[in-house]
Amino acid sequence: MKQSIFTIVRNDALTDCVYKMILSGDTSAITAPGQFVNIALEGKFLRRPISVCDYDDTTLTIIYKVVGKGTAQMKAMEPGEKLDILTGLGNGYDLSVSGDKPVLLGGGVGVPPMYNLAKKLTAMGKKVTVILGFNTKSEIFYEDEFRALGCDVIVATADGSYGVKGFATTPLADLDYTYFYTCGPEPMLKAVYKATATSGQMSFEERMGCGFGACMGCSCKTLTGYKRICKDGPVMRKEEILWNS
């Protein structure tokens, strides 16, 4: 974990309510796709945890949905403005167990962390299939970006307005894959858990206090004990997950 000041390079709309922010700064604490950052905003008491979409040595890309006052404040920020960010939070995905043909399933704002993961897996020579799930055509983002990485990309929309009609899990039945990685809303994670034939890793979300393991605000029960989603997660292995209901 590292606290540092980032400068906004770009802050653009991808859809009606989803924005992409590129920042420049010290990314040295980020070690794996699936980690997140925690952003301090003027006048807001707690930081905003946002997943890392992509990063290199000097830039950080995040994609966020405007859902409340904090993200509305982020949306209004201009290039050149600065943000105090804690980086390198959470465990991230373990790429070493992917097999040759991993499938990545992203739902809504669960799509962004799949991007750097797909980039790293394709660089490792894996045949990566990405399934992007959205409610409707107007909410779709990043389809072309995943294609540009060389992934097989399948888009599913719940209302059938684009691609496969159904959920991110709908195309799984006809797919040959060695392992899965996923991030999305909890109902989707549960569906992925049931629909997948292999082992895999899923990234969870919870209201957080600190984001670095101190406050115990985001704890969950797993088959391997109590875990803090911010510190011991957000990525959990399928085998350790204990659903609440």
Binding site: L46, E206, R207, G209, G217, S219, Y226
Partner: peptide, 23 residues
């Protein structure tokens, strides 16, 4: 102790509410 069910953290103006429950 595990403590209370989540969500157990919320933000307020100039502060926060927690209901961790002694985990």
């Amino acid at each position: 102790r595990f403590g209370n069910p989540t969500p157990r953290i919320a933000e307020c103006t100039a502060g926060m509410i927690n209901a961790v429950g002694l985990q």
